[in-house]
């Protein structure tokens, strides 16, 4: 993985002059204001907003499910919103948007995290895996198969998060007993209460001993 420090496009403290300040100081809008027709046109086309929007974004290089993306995003965009709204990867779910349910769990550089509390702008050069990135062509990931076999869901809304978390739970070495699985899966809430079957699915994959 490329070091975060080496990205030439990244905004660091050395070039921290605010883009917003730049707009203010550059007098761009003042200039427009002196030419009434262009001002009218500008406001009709919402140019000011568009320019400001462009200038208030930051560049982001990110790899999602093996595919590289070079994007411009607002600093406030969460990784969850980036995935769902900009990359159309809607498999990752938004449950609470406040870190309380685990539906948005994805892997970043191999570690499970909550994408709703992660700013995408802080994930320069990160490698992200979502539920869409698990299967090998038409062949489902062993954890996906185990969830189907053991009925590890009812409505399915929490399932992408449960599966991402379940895989990590085994890889971290925290799936050695049903109690341990329950404790280390406690960050994934299931309103349908499929917990028992979820633990069955994870236990089976763990005991299957396949490399995940």
């Amino acid at each position: 993985m490329a070091s975060k420090k080496n990205n030439p496009k990244e905004v660091t403290e050395n070039d921290s002059n605010s883009r917003r300040d730049f707009i203010k100081k550059s007098g761009l809008f003042t200039a427009l204001a002196f030419t009434p027709p262009s001002l009218v046109m500008a406001s009709e086309n919402k140019w000011d907003e568009k320019i400001a929007e462009y200038l208030e974004t930051v560049p982001l290089s990110i790899e999602v499910n093996g595919k590289k993306h070079n994007l411009n995003i607002e600093p406030r965009t969460t990784l969850l919103d980036l995935l769902r709204e900009q990359l159309q990867l809607t498999g990752t779910k938004k449950g609470c948007d406040h870190g309380q349910c685990g539906a948005c769990t994805v892997h970043v550089n191999g570690t499970r995290i909550l994408s709703c509390l992660t700013l995408a702008s802080m994930q320069q050069n990160a490698q992200v895996t979502t539920i869409e990135g698990l299967s090998n062509g038409k062949k489902l990931h062993p954890m996906q198969e185990a969830f189907i076999k053991h009925d590890g869901f009812q409505c399915g809304y929490c399932t992408p998060g449960q599966i991402m978390s379940g895989i990590a739970c085994i890889k971290e070495g925290h799936a050695n007993s049903r109690e341990e699985i329950r404790e280390y899966m406690s960050g994934n809430i299931c309103r349908c209460g499929a917990y028992h079957n979820i633990v069955d699915a994870i236990t089976e994959v763990k005991e299957g001993g396949k490399e995940l």
């Binding site: 975060k4 660091t12 403290e13 921290s16």
Partner: peptide
């Protein structure tokens, strides 16, 4: 609300940088 984000390169510069701003926070 939208905000700016910059990446600090050392503790010293992180502190100097934040000292220049009224409404800045570490993350």
């Amino acid at each position: 609300k939208n905000f700016q984000i910059i990446r600090a390169l050392s503790s010293r510069t992180a502190v100097t940088n934040i000292s220049k701003e009224k409404e800045a926070m570490f993350i």
